[in-house]
Structures are given as structure tokens and as C-alpha cells.
Simulated assay, not measured.
Amino acid sequence: MTDRPPLRSYRPGPWFGILGTHATVLLPPSEKDRVASLWELVDTGAGFDEVLDALIAGGLRELPGFVLVSEAAAGSTREAGTITKVVVRGAARARFTTTDGEVHLEGDEATTWVERSLSGVVASVLEVADDGEATDLPAELRVDTGLVRVSRVEEQVVADEPVPEEEPAPAPPTHRAAPAAPLDEHDTADHDGLTQAGGWTPGPPPPGIPGQEPAPAVTRPVARLLVSTGESVEVDRAVVVGRAPESRRFPHDDQPRLVTVPSPQQEISSMHVEIRPGSGADHGSAVVTDLGSTNGTVLVQPGLPAEDLRPGVGVALLPGAVIDLGDGLTISVVQP
């Protein structure tokens, strides 16, 4: 059993979609001031009761509508058979496909809210009132977790496939192992603040540092970067942008293209961001990752609010996105 999120897509719209691994919250545009605190709660894996308490803390009169979908207990897996709790209020509706059939909920049919506990959920569709579909974006966009503007969110839970049992391989002949080689001093070097002291919890290495799998091979660039200095760079492999980028911190089989940019006020880090071809669900698009920059990176995607990139967390880029590194330096993302 895994702890991965379901397959999730959304249609752009006016409502706020707070999409976490264990919970989904949809809020109307009037609740913009509450979005940040709720995202922090959902992103840390809060359970159903905790998120619901935060939603109604100010009273129902101040909350015209919302949708909350969560597991019965934070930390459980979202597979078929898991108990899923849902609350719908106001101009919102939800449709769930379970192992026992379809379940439809309408939020505007109740004076308070509609609440259900469901088992065996394998797919869901959440829809809210829309003031007109966006015309400059695809009808459906892929997303795992994050904060987006939505009119519809669709999820499909994929259970893990059973792994066939294999007969144990015969034990190799016993031999004395050679002494381990000492670590090179570069193997333990910090990466521009990507340490626990830099303000985030160590985990799997972010793109662009030792241990990261090489960027997938592509036959053509997935995007083109227009740097405000006038430089144009194609993303056919990893691209590292910074005040003084270096390649020695990257594996030999994943050497990036280095783009050096000016930073008169020293706001841009030596190795600020990495843009590389995406893999898996992001295949065919470019993915940007903040490499632990000192002053951070702001990303503005078409039709979406500006967001501060979290160090080591990749975000798929849409054509027309603008990456702001500070010091007046921006990078526009266009089709190749």
C-alpha cells in the first residue's frame, strides 16, 4: 500500500482549489483571505475534523459555500475501500463512483450542509458555480497537489497492482568486501541552503543535485526560455539559471546547460532555479524547481495567482508562464 495521491485534474475557474494528499477543499472567491491558512493545514496532512473546524470557525453565515473531501483519518491511503468523508454547502455539487454505485450530493439543497461518509470510492467529480470558462487554457489540466483556481476537480483513485512473488535467488558466494572509499568533500557540500538549517525538512534530493535521476531524453525541446536579458534557451535537458551556476554538483550523465544572469543587488543566488523536461505525468512539459535560493522565486502561470516556489518542489510550467528571480530578472516560458 502506498501513500500517493490519486490521479487528479481540474478545469480553471473562479473558486479556490486547495488540493492536498489527504484532503480537497474548494472555496468561493469571497474567501480569498482564508486560503493561505487552509492550504498550510491541508498541506501538513490535517484530518477531516481539523479541516472542517477551521472552515466553520467563523460561522456558517460567513461561509456561503464550500466543498471538503477527506479521509476518515489523516495518514491512511486513498485506495478503493478507504472511508471517505465529504461535506458540500452552497452552489456546489459532488458525484462519487463507489464499488456500490454512484452517489450524488447537491450543496444548495440544505440550509446548513450535506454530509456523507462513503466507502469504496474509486472516482469523484466536484463542480462549483462558474462565471464562464477560460478560453486561453486547456479544458482540463493535470495536477497532484497545490493551490489552483477551479470550476471542476476530478479524481481517480488507482490501487496498487499486486507484486508477483518471486522465488528467492540463490545466495552468492561469500567473499570479503573491499573497504568503502572515503567520501569526496563535494559529496557532503550544502547546495545553496538546501539543508535543514535553510528552512525545510530534508527528504529526497531535489532536481539538480547528486542522487537525482537524469532528465528524460527528449527528441525535441519541451519549451523555450526567454530571459529578460535577451537570451533565448531551449529546454531539451536540464537548464540551471543563477548568478554563478556550476555543473560540478551534477552527475556526469546529467550535465545541465548553465545560464549566467546579472544580479546587481545580489538578490539572485549563484544557483537559483532549474528548468528541465518533465517526466511521468509531466512528460512533454517543462518543470521548474527552486534550488534553495536565498530570496526565493515567484511563478506566475496564465489564469492562476502568483505563487512562491517551495525549495526542491518541482512545478509544471504552462506556456506563457513567467518566472521572477528578483533583481528585475524574469524568464518567460513559450512553446519551442
Rank of each mutant, 00 (worst) to 15 (best):
R4M: 14
P6D: 15
P6L: 14
P6C: 12
L7C: 12
S9W: 08
G13T: 01
W15H: 01
V25A: 05
L26Q: 01
P28R: 01
E31P: 13
S37H: 00
L41S: 07
L41K: 10
D43R: 12
G47W: 13
L52R: 14
L60W: 13
R61N: 11
P64A: 00
G65R: 04
V67I: 07
E71W: 13
A74M: 06
T77P: 04
A80P: 03
K85A: 01
V86L: 05
V88C: 01
R93W: 06
F96G: 05
H104R: 10
H104K: 07
L105M: 09
L105F: 08
A110W: 00
A110G: 11
W113P: 00
E115Q: 00
L118Y: 08
V121I: 03
L126I: 03
L126N: 00
E127Q: 09
A129S: 02
D131W: 01
L137M: 04
L137Q: 05
A139R: 02
E140Y: 04
D144M: 10
E154P: 08
E161K: 14
P162M: 14
V163M: 15
A177T: 08
A180F: 04
P182Q: 00
L183N: 12
E185F: 07
H186D: 11
T188C: 02
D190K: 03
G193L: 08
W200C: 12
T201Y: 15
G203L: 13
P205S: 13
P206A: 14
A215G: 12
R220A: 11
P221N: 09
A223C: 09
V227A: 11
S232V: 10
V233R: 02
A238G: 14
G242K: 02
G242A: 09
S247R: 10
P251G: 05
Q255Y: 00
L258P: 01
P262W: 00
S263L: 02
P264R: 09
Q266G: 15
I275H: 02
I275V: 10
R276V: 10
A281E: 08
V288H: 02
L291G: 11
T294N: 06
N295V: 07
V298S: 03
P305I: 02
G312I: 10
A316S: 13
L318Y: 07
V322F: 12
I323S: 15
I323Q: 13
L325W: 04
G328C: 00
S332R: 10
P336V: 01
